[in-house]
Write a protein that binds this DNA or RNA. Sequence first.
DNA 1: ATCATATTGATTTCGATTATCAATATCACC
DNA 2: GGTGATATTGATAATCGAAATCAATATGAT
Lengths: 149, 149
Amino acid sequence: MRKPAAQQLQDYLAGQGLKSTHQRDEILAVFVSAGRHLSVEELYELMKKEHPRIGYATVYRTMKLFAQAGLAEELRFDDGFTRYEYKASDGHHDHLICTRCGRIIEFENDRIEELQESVAKKNRFLAQSHKLEIYGLCGDCRGKRAKKE
Amino acid sequence: MRKPAAQQLQDYLAGQGLKSTHQRDEILAVFVSAGRHLSVEELYELMKKEHPRIGYATVYRTMKLFAQAGLAEELRFDDGFTRYEYKASDGHHDHLICTRCGRIIEFENDRIEELQESVAKKNRFLAQSHKLEIYGLCGDCRGKRAKKE
DNA sequence: ATCATATTGATTTCGATTATCAATATCACC
DNA sequence: GGTGATATTGATAATCGAAATCAATATGAT
């Protein structure tokens, strides 16, 4: 079972002596319901629709906060800017990224995780985290012929 | 057998109708001999010692050129800036990155590569490239107690 | 309700990278 | 070996996402 996101946020704020604000609640609601892999820019645009007074900086700050609270994970793909994904309680997963349409697909593979662990051990490394990204063409895009560009 | 880097550069330049310059030759020599995983900043500092007249922008431009020529690979780890590694002809490899001292260790694991391919296939993806980074503490750093910070 | 303090929002700053542009170097051709 | 068209260089400004600043405001303990 998963603690509701809103509750998890309140617990974190209380535990850290931080304050509960409308902005934080609203950003969380939009972030969670919007689906995943949102850039700050995208999230800011979504926020503006419902809460036009929200500031750009607040969205940045709040997403960093969510990351620290364990509510969100920071993703940095090759296109330069940071995305956040809502962190469900189920295990770690990695990403397939379509280089044409930008679609992002999640996957998990326990065997790969194990092999990574063994690679770390072999090199006397204590693994803390990892990142596996596979770039390529998604099913929809591989069919299409390359657009003129 | 590997074509010498200098020769590979000349071939690429000729093939593209580009010009061979001292700067490009010198940057390549320093880059190749310096070892691997150099940030542009680091490479620029190395260059200045032997060729103080080199410009910052030239180093940036030239590394991009080397990447296109297949001489270098662009690496973007989580610390924000781009590094380049000399691209040997042997196969793809991935990286273990120490989060304390910054050390970078290369590894390759064919089994992981195969599994990635099968994950791609399972999702109807045509894999073009991938990136696997394992962050953690290297052998030297895991022993040490956390420094006060 | 009061007040110390955390937070917000508008804005500026930062830091890595890229674009601009006049001066210069390269190279194909004579 | 000169000449000229053009690619390249180097100094600098511009860019862009992200982070810092700071006065005004909201929060929550008392």
